[in-house]
């Protein structure tokens, strides 16, 4: 349903994505994993059209996101939802108005209908009764669930999740992860999740894409990934500090530098 073609994104001389081709199937949960700086958040923002690629294409069916008119993009986005890493609730609005926001903006529904829909969405995330709180009064986990309800408000076909479990306690993280899994199954929507939470990611995924240095290094179901021979994949899912993925990002060895720079260290 969604696929990318030779997708690259450079920030000055840092390459975040390098000729990446990925395929996302409809009505599945696709989890994109990778360490910090592996380009996964960039990939998500590109897929959502929040950034423009340096080169390459993103296809939604037969529509190319690259060079699409703003009007068409907004039409497409009316069928998308996104859960941001820090929830991104609108500060000036309370929980109810935040969830109702997309409905008020894009539909001409009666207030009572909107009220019912918002209550349903809040019930889905377990926050019915918290309508009048302001975002500043919510805990991180609650804010995420409100943002989730907002992302679901328009009954979207595609929902993007940017680090849905990061910064949450294990229980809240588990709640969010199971919500993503359940709602994807029940509403037949397409979920695209970016995370470095291996446990939750493999739990809910129908399809996993592992990125490293802007490239796909492994792809498949959770079991395929668990049993993958690639040493980098194993290091990542087991969370070992030593392995082919270096902990240090410096290009040269510090000890070598010390030995060869004149006047820094004298070995007698």
């Amino acid at each position: 349903m969604i696929h990318t073609e030779q997708l690259s994104r450079h920030f000055d001389d840092v390459i975040a994505l390098n000729n990446t081709d990925i395929h996302i199937k409809a009505q599945q949960t696709t989890v994109i994993m990778g360490g910090s700086g592996s380009g996964k958040t960039t990939l998500l923002r590109l897929l959502a059209g929040l950034e423009c690629p340096t080169s390459g294409h993103i296809w939604y069916g037969d529509d190319d996101l690259n060079g699409m008119s703003q009007k068409r993009l907004y039409q497409l986005r009316a069928r998308m939802g996104m859960l941001f890493q820090y929830s991104a609730l609108l500060n000036s609005l309370n929980v109810y108005d935040n969830v109702a926001f997309p409905l008020v903006e894009h539909t001409k529904l009666d207030n009572s209908v909107i009220h019912t829909m918002v209550t349903m969405k809040l019930e889905q995330v377990g926050l019915r009764g918290f309508e009048n709180l302001m975002p500043s009064q919510l805990s991180g986990g609650m804010a995420k669930r409100v943002a989730f309800a907002r992302a679901l408000a328009m009954d979207p076909e595609v929902v993007f999740f940017d680090e849905p479990t990061s910064g949450l306690d294990p229980i809240s993280a588990g709640v969010i992860a199971s919500l993503i899994g359940n709602i994807t199954k029940h509403t037949k929507m397409t979920s695209i999740v970016v995370t470095h939470d291996v446990h939750a990611g493999l739990e809910i995924a129908d399809h996993v894409i592992l990125l490293w240095q802007g490239k796909v290094i492994a792809e498949g179901t959770s079991d395929v990934i668990r049993n993958c021979d690639d040493a980098r994949v194993q290091q990542f899912i087991e969370g070992r500090p030593d392995g082919p993925i270096p902990f240090s990002r410096s290009e040269t060895s510090y000890i070598e530098d010390l030995l060869h720079k004149p006047g820094t260290v004298r070995i007698s």
Binding site: L50, Q70, Y74, Q75, N91, P102
Partner: peptide, 18 residues
Amino acid sequence: GIMRVTEQLDALQMMAVN
């Protein structure tokens, strides 16, 4: 600026509000 930091501007984009 805070709307930018907390991704509220992106959230508006994603809700098709310019």
